[in-house]
Nucleic acid binder design. Structure first.
Lengths: 184, 184
DNA sequence: AGGTGCATGTAACAGGTTACATGATTAA
DNA sequence: TTAATCATGTAACCTGTTACATGCACCT
């Protein structure tokens, strides 16, 4: 029986965020999910259906330690990283492979195919803008103080998120003006 | 036996791009995949493993017509939209539900958790920039004339893609300068 | 007494990737 | 002749979402 060397490339998407959140100080599946939903959600989502099984797998693999810490009579399982878990997390954070970028953007797809439909390009662009305006609102709602964007890890990504959503909104506005001008 | 009214919300991700590509003038599974890879790939990818089964499902559902059109002795199945297929495509293009936006961005996730590792934030930001510079190159390589960005559907999305990747690169550069200044 | 939030989980399903297999054609 | 490209497809696997089920605790 060989103990295989675990590398960060074996981590699933949910695994990565779970490991990170444990180091971040979130200790139960519930806490992890809640915090993901108000932090990384916009660029890295996760669901209970993945988080809980992943925590169990990590326990079996010795990457986390779990103990039961009920609050009152309510069951509650608390997790923390083992040294192996910490090692795996750092090795992932330090790996230099090209980081994954995956996008699914329905508005852009519709715009791409707009000639096959009857809706004007202008409408597709407006719909794209609305989507990103919603994103901006959501980002600002969670952390209103983000406007100052200090350089701690969490705030840096927030500032990046604000910037690039704003960039798309600006592009839409400019394009809308141009398209409206051509029609009017 | 009731013929159910098909709505665009029943379309899978791959279904949407397949339908659109058929209207766009791509008629075989192979052509669709090739063209996706040099057009929508950056915001909507698809694989053979989904495209071929989807084409068969569409045939069964009467959304496309298929006929065998071998080129020489090499097998080749050509597909085209039926009226039902066209209707479904337009109804999707005209649907006003908030269009899906999904992002998986590993660089941002690493930056978010950077305090748990030993790598400097500066390195994470540089890695993010490298990723988006690659995207820019890929976009320009396929359509060098995109710099002029006319307003046809395909070029509009290309222009948007260029803009927002450029925006992230700029943010990275500014942030790198700031982080380097704090360290030096 | 009832609603909201805390907390844990599973089953069914959907969606998608990867690797593999096959074979013809064409250009070097 | 060999590599690349055209062309089609499947099986195994992985990943992930949704909906459901359960029950405690706290506040009003």
């Amino acid at each position: 029986m060989t103990v295989e060397h675990r590398t960060s490339s074996e981590l699933s998407a949910t695994g990565k965020v779970v490991l990170g959140m444990l180091a971040f100080g979130k200790h139960t599946g519930y806490e992890i999910k809640q915090f993901v939903d108000k932090s990384t959600r916009h660029f890295w989502a996760a669901s209970y259906g993945q988080i809980y099984p992943e925590l169990r797998r990590f326990t079996v693999q010795g990457l986390v330690r779990s103990r039961s810490e009920p609050s009152g009579r309510r069951a509650r399982t608390v997790f923390e990283l083992t040294e192996d878990g910490e090692r795996l997390l750092t090795s992932w954070l330090e790996s230099t492979e090209a980081p994954l970028i995956e996008l699914r953007h329905e508005g852009m797809l519709k715009l791409f195919f707009s000639d096959a439909g009857t809706a004007a390009k202008l409408d597709h662009v407006r719909a794209i803008r609305a989507g990103h305006e919603r994103k901006l609102e959501a980002l600002l709602a969670v952390e209103p103080q983000a406007r100052q964007a200090p350089d701690s890890g969490p705030y840096l990504t927030l500032s990046l998120g604000l910037r690039f959503n704003q960039c798309i909104v600006d592009w839409c506005l400019a394009t809308e003006r141009r398209l409206a001008g051509e029609e009017g």
